[in-house]
Design a protein around this nucleic acid. Structure first.
Lengths: 188, 188
DNA sequence: ACCTGAACACCGTTCAAGT
DNA sequence: ACCTGAACACCGTTCAAGT
């Protein structure tokens, strides 16, 4: 709040005439971001409709790196979140999913439904080949499998793409794994 | 830090003789939690081995509700995290997964590999039927699909289990969706 | 080796007051 | 209707000092 006030050239307490507290501010910020997500383009089957929509949400969120953390910290869904999730449920239902399966599907997608996945291990940024070599060397003894994986992901791909892994690919990989699995369950 | 110090009946600064800063304290705390996870019981195929291990990790984490949030906030993996993840990779590799597919699999599992999923919508706690009715009534207009789902999850199941959804079931549902999909890719 | 006290640089937020 | 100033109740952490 203090930083924002300073940025606006105003005293901290001036903000509290426009916003009840910090939580309300964050709620509003998220509402704007989610509101930027385009509507679902229908007519191509539930899977590709949902796929495009989720990837579109991902694009919106990528313009605001702070958003995932804030979204996770919300305790109640804001109106825009409800509207978005309502339309996602709508896609499932129109695609022939039962209410129960739709419910499980939402849980399975988790935050991915909003276009992001909170990453516990971050291996996406580029790494100096020399630093990598040293790290791998250190891991080798106690964590041989981690070392092997790090070697493969960074070193082997480094010559081609510049090292590290492709976040977009990983996101789509997991998304498709889930969507394909859900389609199978829907049919069964 | 101040709360912890008070809890220990000591002045805040006394803690800093045992720990460099708050981050180091949190690192140590999650090291202990991850260390509690039992070793993988081998000999039943990669899928059930990994399944049991992840569900065991989940059990450990459930004893410490603060753990998921702290794990996500770590920027570098602690030794126990590395050891755990090393053994998970080991299960994949022993099961015949290529390094590349193992890498994608880890990303797809995400925090689920550690036994938790950060939930963006929390519908697990029990709800007063009267409150539910009022909420559903309000949602009906603007968010019909959300209303329908809330109705189904809370009301219909309320007569049987007491309302809300079964976190354990949802976790296993998503986990199996991913593991089954990975098995299919491994074969292909 | 371990603990203490006072202080610093931060937070979000209240309250009473100003225009 | 909007902004201000001083203050409160918190944080994590430094520094110099005590046993």
């Amino acid at each position: 709040m203090r930083k924002l006030a300073e940025h606006l050239g105003v005293v901290p307490m001036a903000l509290y005439k426009h916003v009840a507290d910090k939580e309300e501010l964050l709620d509003g910020m998220i509402d704007i971001v989610i509101g930027e997500v385009g509507p679902p383009a229908d007519g191509t089957g539930w899977k590709s409709t949902l796929r495009e929509r989720i990837l579109s949400a991902r694009q919106s969120l990528q313009r605001h790196p702070w958003a995932p953390g804030v979204i996770e910290s919300r305790k109640d869904p804001s109106p825009a979140m409800l509207a978005y999730i309502d339309s996602v449920i709508g896609v499932f239902r129109a695609g022939g999913f039962s209410i129960g399966l739709t419910h499980h599907a939402l849980h399975a997608l988790g935050s991915r439904a909003y276009g992001f996945t909170p990453e516990v291990f971050n291996d996406s940024q580029g790494l100096d080949p020399q630093v990598l070599e040293a790290v791998v060397q250190q891991l080798q003894g106690q964590y041989p499998y981690v070392a092997e994986l790090a070697q493969a992901v960074y070193h082997d791909e480094a010559s081609v793409v510049g090292g590290g892994c492709d976040d977009q690919f990983e996101f789509e990989f997991a998304l498709d794994l889930l969507l394909d699995g859900l389609e199978r369950l829907r049919r069964g």
